[in-house]
Write a protein that binds this DNA or RNA. Structure first.
Lengths: 209, 209
DNA sequence: TCCTTACGCTACGACCCGTAGCGTAACTGT
DNA sequence: ACAGTTACGCTACGGGTCGTAGCGTAAGGA
């Protein structure tokens, strides 16, 4: 949204249609599936949503921001049930994340907005808030559980604890994304198992130093 | 290039200007730096290169393919000197790859063309041939050296050997790309060291299973 | 009821796309 | 030297998208 109005957006006048919001985001996802990123146009999204093109521009300043919002909700599907061991939790989240990247609307949109964000700090912040942080939560949660089980040591230093979490996050998410989108090969049960073995052994060694 | 002419391209007539080729690719990289991916236009590249716009279309069918070729040569800079240990080799290649992704023309172009390739098989093949395989060579070389040093076991099965190499490649490249472009934090000496420790320990464990 | 804001619609200039057509330049084989 | 072939620069064009402005109307709040 365009500056969602910090405390009090606007009390008077006709309120914005929440139904239109959802219709636009849904139409944007559908358009991504059919047309992909480069051929997606604001006019097409407006037509699919049954709203005027001007309504889109009243809410989103650019195609980039619209697509980020449209795709962000999909990352809410990610969950991390307690499967009893760090190994099982990692294995599970890898497969979940891979399944998300198998969807055409996410696989084409995610890399495109990341590419744009290299030149647009505001867009990068939006991606961080609505997509990246939602994934990172899972890493932090899984790590906390593993520490409670005694599978991972509790780091005394706060700073190194944070950078370790960042490292784990980049390794997991990076490997799955690279496997799926660059190497273009499937993240199947076997790959997830091998990756999990590699990561867990690495974590044990990283903790020792 | 557009179908580089398999054995004998064309013997007669005026030959294509090799100088124009290089001028176009150079202009494309410069335009990427100044404008980024989304605002880059074929007309702008042509103007910078001092050629007509039609000349671009005679050689590249689309902006995507032009950018892939323009960026591909940068990946030739990657080298893997024998530093005496697998640890040192991994550490070195991580920093090299990160330095490459620090350049504005690569960081914006790489993700953009990968995003487009999710809907274009021909583009994906081009990326694989001119970019991905050039990186993967380094992984295979480093692995071979480590096996000769006795740091890594020689896998008996050819198929598992290949999939192990793929796994390593996706972990290394994926983590560096994700750290640089998604998390948007620097791959410095300390990060490279921690990552190397994690990976090497993981490789040892993965080999044991 | 008045005020304020959102909405749909139309129209618009600006820009980029990708191609066609033409005359000219460069190189090859006879 | 000459004809044949291909590349190049240039201009022009229809088609599409962009993002905005202006208008009349719809929907809520004081």
């Amino acid at each position: 949204m365009l500056s969602p109005g910090h405390p009090e957006p606007a009390r008077t006048g006709r309120p914005r249609s929440a139904a239109a919001d959802e219709a636009i985001l849904e139409a944007c996802r559908a358009s991504l599936v059919d047309l992909g990123w480069s051929k997606l146009t604001m006019g097409d999204v407006a037509t699919r949503a049954g709203v005027a093109k001007t309504t889109l521009y009243r809410r989103w300043a650019s195609k980039n921001e619209l697509v980020v919002d449209a795709v962000a909700v999909l990352f809410d599907e990610l969950e991390l049930p307690d499967l009893g061991s760090l190994s099982a939790d990692v294995h599970n989240v890898v497969l979940q994340f891979a399944a998300l990247l198998d969807r055409p609307e996410t696989r084409t949109a995610l890399m495109a907005v990341v590419a744009e964000s290299t030149r647009d700090d505001a867009l990068r912040a939006r991606i961080r808030d609505s997509i990246v942080d939602r994934q990172k939560r899972l890493v932090l949660l899984g790590r906390r559980r593993a520490q409670q089980r005694g599978e991972l040591p509790v780091e005394p230093d706060e700073a190194t604890a944070a950078s370790t979490a960042d490292l784990i996050f980049d390794v997991i998410a990076g490997a799955v994304v690279h496997r799926t989108l660059v190497s273009a090969e499937p993240v199947d049960e076997d790959w997830a198992r091998r990756f999990t073995v590699l990561l867990l052994a690495g974590l044990g060694a990283a903790a020792a130093t």
